[in-house]
Design a protein around this nucleic acid. Sequence first.
DNA 1: CTGAAAGCGCTTACAG
DNA 2: CTGAAAGCGCTTACAG
Lengths: 328, 328
Amino acid sequence: MSSVKEVAARANVSVATVSRVLNHDPSVKAVNRQKVMRAIEELQYKPNVLAKNLRKQSSNTIAMVMPTIANPFYAGIVRGAQEAIRNSGYHMILGTTGWQADTYENMLSTSQVDGIIILSSWANKKVIQKLNENYPVVMCNEYFDDIHITYVAIDNRKAGYDAACELIRRGCRNIVYITGSKKSSSVGDRLTGYKEALSEAGIDFRPELIVKPHQGNGEDGQLVGILNELVDQGIAIDGLLTHSDLMAAFVLKGIRDKAIRLAEEVGMISFDGTFLTEISNPGVTAIVQPAYELGFSSVKLLLQKIQNKEINTSGRHILDHQLVVRET
Amino acid sequence: MSSVKEVAARANVSVATVSRVLNHDPSVKAVNRQKVMRAIEELQYKPNVLAKNLRKQSSNTIAMVMPTIANPFYAGIVRGAQEAIRNSGYHMILGTTGWQADTYENMLSTSQVDGIIILSSWANKKVIQKLNENYPVVMCNEYFDDIHITYVAIDNRKAGYDAACELIRRGCRNIVYITGSKKSSSVGDRLTGYKEALSEAGIDFRPELIVKPHQGNGEDGQLVGILNELVDQGIAIDGLLTHSDLMAAFVLKGIRDKAIRLAEEVGMISFDGTFLTEISNPGVTAIVQPAYELGFSSVKLLLQKIQNKEINTSGRHILDHQLVVRET
DNA sequence: CTGAAAGCGCTTACAG
DNA sequence: CTGAAAGCGCTTACAG
């Protein structure tokens, strides 16, 4: 690979001039600009991003961090994020499972990335708080109300309320909520909404109806055991709320396989509303989250923070969700 | 952030010694090693990866490039890849849609990544060939038999043959194959297998039964129109092969919505066999690809190429697929 | 066993 | 308008 030095030699100018041309500095005389451009062309010169970033102490790159790519909800968010970053002069990398918090701390501190977007509950509060104190950070789809941070999400309390109300309206009384990590604020808020709906309808809240898979989304048939246990305890489950579309899909499969001994007529509502709820048979009623817009807004907000050198600022950006009634 | 310089100052040694400690050079005296370690600890020093990579002209990082993350098949591959890279001393970044071929060329030439794994038909043959001539490259799940390249994949000809045979065995005669990009070798090979099975069974090959969505996996109901058109032409479709699980899911949805006017009894086999074929109702019969192993092997092969400084070598690594019969 | 120095490939005050 | 020089934070022959 050729470097600025070789380009400079070929164009008979200094490396400073080459660099200026590269960075569209208007002060370069047209003649010299031409010479440099020709040399770049002839040598097929491509700037070394590593060197550039090291020198500038910034990379024009952001990272989007997610717990796993195996959830279609994230795919929608990523699509929106990619659209928002297009033509912004920034790049986005996807932080994958397996990278640790200190990886990001490191990437930020060494200017490999200029800011990060954190999807869902990828790390604990303390870690995120520390990152947010020192670097531009935006949370997407998850948040912590008790720390100063910028986030984009739906109103999860209202979403939980809306979902529960719909089931109650249909006559459900024993509504099981298959939920996620307790540390997650979206889990907590949806639960609050669920309780409010119950209370409004004069139904007692029963903590035993709140369950969660030991890990993940219940891929390996975990949900079967959990639900059957409730049935064994004599609970006549007539409504089901699932924290993710994947969970809903696995529950449906369990019912279909007759592995879960639920009644035929169980009202089910899933959160996220990805294409999984559409292709399911029966189609799953869902609280549809605006995945694309969540991703889009997160990026726009992060770029704004980066450009304004904002750190440790906060802001709540709430997007609308939608109840889409299908067959369950 | 502190640098080697500050660590050196605090430890009363030279930066060279600090660097040696950082790189586990055994020649450093124990006393000095201790002093440096303490200084690192006290200053919370973290090496600057950018500087290190620039100097060493290598990054211990590989990229896995995929057309989109919105396909669960890739999630399985990524999982295997992550497992293979764990404890190897290398990192993996995910190349997302929207990055262009020259992005990778650039990352490779400037040592941001030491090698790449290309999933599916993300770029055209010429581009990949050029990359492969200059850098360590492994193709996964897609390949080009007419260029020198290392790849990991299933035997797609046999997969197409196995799938078609199964449908023919069931009595299907008008088997529509919803396929993918013509440039893709997996598409071509599966088609070859399909034709072989037909020929063996004495069934004429009819090109009009080979169709494909204009783009993607038929998300937006494209497949409905395509299939209905065939029905309108008087073709009594009694078998269906789909190039991806997503396609199968959308076809099922179309049938269920009565948007596609297919007979009730259509044998359907999908390629990939992700969890989508399991949760579908009816469950979709599938040629299951070993996603995890594909990812795992790809990484192992790439790391081997990088460590041996192999470039422009070739190798075929064929993993077994499996026909899993479900309800379709 | 250790340090001074060169250099990876850039950018950017500074001086002219 | 341009160039020489310093420097981003590392590593590594080389000399001692």
